[in-house]
C-alpha cells in the first residue's frame, strides 16, 4: 500500500517535523484514556462479581443482654445462614476488625466502650442466586433487628459512577482521534500547497492522483508510527507510576486496579493505530483535494 521512495520532498516540510510530536502528545493522552477505560472496566467487573458473592449479616448489639443471650443469637443466625442454599462459608468478624472498620468514625476505642454489633461475613455461590430478602425475613423472625446487607445499593452506585467515567474516557479518546485526524489533514493540505509545482509536474508526466496520494500516505504512516512510538514510550512509565500510586491507595477501599494484560496489549496497538489513521487521513485528503484540479 505504501512506498518508501518519494518523488516529492516531503521530508523537508517544516510541519512534518512537528507532526510526530503532535501525534506523540495525542497518543500519550489516548494511552492514558484507554488505560482508564480498560482499568475501570476491569475494576467494575471485579466489584460486580466479587461483591455479588458476599453478604454481611448484622446482629444489633444489646448491652443489657448477657453473653449467653448473644451467643445464642449468634448460633441461631449461623444455623439459619448455613441452612440457606447457596451459602459457601459464613464467619464472624472479630471485634478487633470491627473496631478497625469503625476507627475512621469513632477513633481509637476499646470494645468495652461501645456496644458493637455482631457482623457475619457470608460468602455465597453466585450461580445459585441466594435471595437476601428471604434470609432477612427468616433472621428477623428469630432475632429482632437482624439485617442482611447484600451491598446492592452502593455497589450499583459505584458501578454506575465507574461506567460514567468509562464513557467520559471513551469520549476523550474520540476527541483525541478527531484532533489527530484534523492535524494530519491540515499538515497534508499544507504539504499540497508547498509542493503544488512538483505535483503539477507529476500530473503532467501522467501520474494518477493515487500515485501522488500514495506518497503522502506513506510519509504520514512513517510520521504516525514515529509519533505513536514516542507517545507510548512516555505513556508506559506514567501508567506504571499511576499503578504504583493506586496500589498504595487501594489498601483501604479499592480492590486491585492494576491494568490487565489485555489493556497493555491494546496500548501496544496504539502506535500502529496512529500510523493507520495518519496514512488513511493523508490519502483521503490528497485524493479529495486533487479532484478539484484538472
Amino acid at each position: 500500500m505504501f512506498s518508501r521512495r518519494t518523488d516529492l520532498p516531503l521530508d523537508k516540510d517544516p510541519l512534518s517535523r512537528f507532526l510526530p510530536w503532535l501525534i506523540a502528545f495525542m497518543v500519550y493522552l489516548a494511552a492514558l484514556a484507554q488505560a482508564g477505560v480498560v482499568g475501570m472496566d476491569a475494576l467494575a467487573q471485579r466489584w460486580d462479581t466479587g461483591m455479588a458473592a458476599t453478604l454481611t449479616v448484622q446482629i444489633p448489639a444489646d448491652p443489657e443482654a448477657g453473653a449467653a443471650t448473644n451467643a445464642r443469637q449468634l448460633q441461631i443466625a449461623m444455623n439459619l445462614i448455613s441452612e440457606s442454599s447457596g451459602v459457601l462459608t459464613a464467619s464472624v468478624i472479630s471485634e478487633d476488625k470491627v473496631l478497625k472498620l469503625l476507627s475512621p468514625w469513632l477513633g481509637l476505642v476499646e470494645a468495652a466502650d461501645v456496644p458493637l454489633p455482631i457482623l457475619i461475613d457470608v460468602e455465597t455461590d453466585p450461580s445459585l442466586d441466594l435471595d437476601a430478602r428471604v434470609l432477612q425475613q427468616k433472621l428477623a423472625q428469630r432475632i429482632p433487628g437482624a439485617q442482611v446487607d447484600d451491598h446492592g445499593v452502593w455497589l450499583a452506585r459505584l458501578i454506575e459512577m465507574v461506567r460514567t467515567l468509562e464513557a467520559l474516557a471513551g469520549g476523550v479518546l474520540l476527541f483525541i482521534l478527531l484532533s489527530a485526524t484534523g492535524t494530519v489533514m491540515f499538515t497534508t493540505r499544507t504539504g499540497l500547497t508547498v509542493h503544488a509545482e512538483a505535483i503539477e509536474v507529476l500530473h503532467i508526466t501522467g501520474a494518477h492522483d493515487r500515485y501522488i496520494a500514495k506518497q503522502f500516505a506513506g510519509r504520514a504512516v512513517a510520521l504516525g508510527l514515529k509519533g505513536g512510538l514516542y507517545g507510548i514510550s512516555l505513556a508506559i512509565p506514567t501508567l506504571l507510576v499511576l499503578g504504583h500510586m493506586a496500589g498504595r491507595m487501594e489498601a483501604g477501599l479499592l480492590p486491585d486496579i492494576q491494568l490487565p494484560l489485555l489493556g497493555w496489549a491494546s496500548l501496544a496497538l496504539l502506535p500502529m493505530l496512529s500510523a493507520l489513521v495518519a496514512g488513511m487521513t493523508a490519502r483521503r485528503t490528497v485524493m479529495r483535494n486533487l479532484r478539484r484540479m484538472l
Binding site: H203, T205, G206, A207, H208, D209, R291, L294
Partner: peptide, 13 residues
C-alpha cells in the same frame, strides 16, 4: 479525470 493520465503520457513537455 481518470482518462487524463493516459493521455498525458502521450505528451512530452
Amino acid at each position: 479525470r481518470d482518462q487524463l493520465p493516459a493521455l498525458r503520457r502521450s505528451i512530452g513537455v
